[in-house]
Computed example of a mutant assay.
Amino acid sequence: MIKESLFAEEEREAKLDKLGDILQVLEKHVDFGALAKAIDEAAPRPSQEKGGRPPFPTEIMVRALVLQQLYSLSDEQMEFQLLDRLSFQRFVGLRYSSQIPDRTTFWTFKERLVKANARETLFDAVNRELDKHGYIARCGQIVDATIVPAPRQHLKKGEKDLVKQAAMPIDWKPAQRRQKDIDATWTKKHGKSYFGYKLSTSADKRYKLIRKLKVSTASEHDTHHLEAVLDTGNTCRDLYADKGYVDGERETQLKEAGWRVHIQRKAGKGKPLSDCQKQRNTRIAKSRARVEHVHASLEQMGGKGLRCIGLDRAVLQLNLKAAAYNLRRLCSLKTGGVVSAFAS
Rank of each mutant, 00 (worst) to 15 (best):
residue 1 M to H: 11
residue 8 A to N: 11
residue 10 E to K: 14
residue 11 E to A: 12
residue 15 K to F: 12
residue 16 L to F: 06
residue 17 D to G: 09
residue 22 I to G: 05
residue 28 K to G: 07
residue 30 V to C: 01
residue 31 D to K: 05
residue 32 F to C: 05
residue 35 L to W: 00
residue 37 K to M: 13
residue 38 A to H: 07
residue 39 I to R: 00
residue 43 A to T: 01
residue 45 R to I: 14
residue 45 R to E: 15
residue 54 P to Y: 11
residue 58 T to G: 12
residue 60 I to S: 11
residue 63 R to N: 05
residue 63 R to T: 07
residue 70 L to C: 11
residue 72 S to E: 12
residue 72 S to R: 08
residue 75 D to Y: 13
residue 81 Q to S: 14
residue 82 L to N: 10
residue 84 D to P: 06
residue 89 Q to E: 03
residue 94 L to K: 03
residue 95 R to S: 15
residue 97 S to M: 11
residue 98 S to R: 15
residue 101 P to Q: 11
residue 101 P to E: 08
residue 102 D to L: 09
residue 104 T to C: 08
residue 105 T to G: 03
residue 105 T to L: 04
residue 105 T to H: 03
residue 106 F to Q: 07
residue 107 W to M: 11
residue 109 F to G: 03
residue 111 E to R: 11
residue 112 R to S: 14
residue 114 V to C: 02
residue 116 A to I: 13
residue 117 N to L: 13
residue 119 R to G: 05
residue 123 F to G: 00
residue 126 V to W: 02
residue 131 D to S: 12
residue 132 K to L: 14
residue 134 G to P: 09
residue 138 R to Y: 09
residue 146 T to S: 14
residue 148 V to C: 03
residue 149 P to G: 10
residue 149 P to D: 13
residue 150 A to G: 02
residue 150 A to I: 01
residue 152 R to E: 15
residue 152 R to I: 13
residue 167 A to W: 07
residue 168 M to Y: 12
residue 169 P to W: 13
residue 173 K to T: 14
residue 177 R to W: 07
residue 180 K to H: 12
residue 183 D to P: 07
residue 184 A to Q: 02
residue 186 W to H: 13
residue 187 T to M: 08
residue 192 K to L: 12
residue 193 S to F: 12
residue 194 Y to I: 03
residue 197 Y to C: 02
residue 198 K to L: 05
residue 200 S to G: 10
residue 202 S to T: 01
residue 211 R to I: 04
residue 214 K to E: 15
residue 227 E to T: 12
residue 227 E to V: 10
residue 229 V to Q: 05
residue 230 L to Q: 02
residue 232 T to L: 05
residue 232 T to Y: 06
residue 234 N to T: 08
residue 234 N to P: 03
residue 234 N to Y: 02
residue 236 C to Q: 04
residue 236 C to S: 10
residue 239 L to M: 09
residue 240 Y to V: 01
residue 240 Y to K: 01
residue 244 G to V: 02
residue 244 G to I: 00
residue 244 G to T: 01
residue 246 V to Q: 15
residue 247 D to Q: 04
residue 250 R to S: 06
residue 251 E to H: 15
residue 251 E to S: 15
residue 253 Q to T: 13
residue 255 K to C: 08
residue 265 R to T: 12
residue 266 K to A: 14
residue 276 C to Q: 11
residue 276 C to I: 11
residue 279 Q to Y: 05
residue 281 N to L: 02
residue 284 I to V: 10
residue 285 A to M: 02
residue 286 K to F: 03
residue 288 R to S: 01
residue 289 A to W: 06
residue 291 V to T: 02
residue 292 E to R: 07
residue 298 L to K: 00
residue 304 K to Y: 08
residue 307 R to T: 08
residue 308 C to T: 14
residue 310 G to I: 04
residue 311 L to G: 10
residue 314 A to S: 09
residue 318 L to H: 00
residue 318 L to T: 00
residue 320 L to Q: 00
residue 322 A to W: 00
residue 327 L to G: 00
residue 337 G to P: 01
residue 337 G to F: 03
residue 337 G to E: 05
residue 339 V to L: 06
residue 342 F to R: 00
residue 343 A to H: 14
residue 343 A to N: 11
